[in-house]
Amino acid sequence: MNIYFQKSFQRGFGTFPLKGDDLRNAIDAAIAAGYRAFDTAQMYGNEAETGAALAACGVAREKLCITTKVHPDNYTEAAFLPSVVASLKALQIDRVDVLLLHWPPADGDVAPSLRLLQSAREAGLAGAIGVSNYTARMMHVARATVDGPLVTNQVEFHPLLDQRKLLAAATETGIPLSSYASVARGEVFKHGLFAEIGTAYGKSAAQVVLRWILQKGVPLNTMSTKPENIRANFEIMDFTLSSIDMDRIDALTATGHRIVKTGLLPWVPEWD
């Protein structure tokens, strides 16, 4: 089974942009709420603090799923594997559960960095590998380039953005999507439909949004510093949205609200 589709790991806790006490307290609250999957990255500058918090959290290492991502500046033969070794040292682990390429390279030629990613798995530095922020075309190149499974393409995914092309590519390539920016950095709360639907289920607007993502077959990452929100974001497995309500939410994908726009960072591709 894909590690992200294990029930305990479908709901991950993202650590960006947290640092210091905010990060430690949030991880402690996430552990208490039941989270066992945690997401960080070289780019976030918080791997060491994340590793320290998880090492001290009281949960056995084998019950955690730790994901980190390689910075595009390290997509060279000389830098790639040493950067992963440095991440493992910072995280206080011998092997990361999931290692992702954080972005496609700026020139769009994804094959070289994919081969480096595969070498990290072959070297035993990662239990599973995947990508992030890939277009549908890039997903097809990845499938043709890498031997063995790619466990995810982590992308911006929420009900205000139409990602049908990526969902189709996930089916075609066998590379599942997972989400970041799952509540569109709060933009979803400007739409009353989620609270309206939530009332019928005894759930909050945010819980409806997250449940919609899961029912799309997309494991998710959420982040909050408020213990009550951290807990609520986790407590979404005890209800199922009806097909009618799913369709009502689907209609909002036509909004086309994208947070990570082309040009925002040097590596952001031309999106599908």
Score class of each variant (00 low, 15 high):
residue 213 I to T: 12
residue 229 N to K: 13
residue 223 M to I: 14
residue 167 L to D: 07
residue 35 Y to L: 03
residue 164 R to P: 04
residue 22 D to R: 13
residue 29 A to Q: 06
residue 144 A to W: 00
residue 98 V to Y: 00
residue 147 D to H: 14
residue 269 P to D: 09
residue 194 F to I: 03
residue 82 P to F: 04
residue 82 P to I: 12
residue 76 T to Y: 07
residue 82 P to Q: 10
residue 48 A to D: 04
residue 256 G to M: 04
residue 83 S to D: 12
residue 233 N to S: 13
residue 5 F to G: 04
residue 77 E to R: 14
residue 112 P to S: 13
residue 38 F to I: 08
residue 269 P to F: 11
residue 256 G to Q: 04
residue 43 M to C: 13
residue 234 F to P: 03
residue 171 T to K: 14
residue 241 L to W: 03
residue 166 L to S: 10
residue 129 I to L: 08
residue 108 G to Y: 03
residue 196 E to H: 13
residue 102 H to E: 06
residue 66 I to K: 02
residue 160 L to W: 01
residue 240 T to G: 13
residue 133 N to L: 06
residue 221 N to D: 11
residue 34 G to A: 09
residue 136 A to M: 09
residue 147 D to T: 15
residue 162 D to F: 00
residue 27 I to H: 00
residue 190 K to E: 14
residue 161 L to Y: 05
residue 143 R to S: 07
residue 126 A to H: 09
residue 47 E to A: 09
residue 164 R to L: 12
residue 118 Q to L: 14
residue 150 L to R: 00
residue 91 L to K: 06
residue 69 K to W: 04
residue 39 D to I: 06
residue 208 V to N: 01
residue 234 F to S: 07
residue 243 S to K: 15
residue 147 D to N: 15
residue 65 C to T: 11
residue 193 L to G: 08
residue 65 C to I: 07
residue 18 L to F: 08
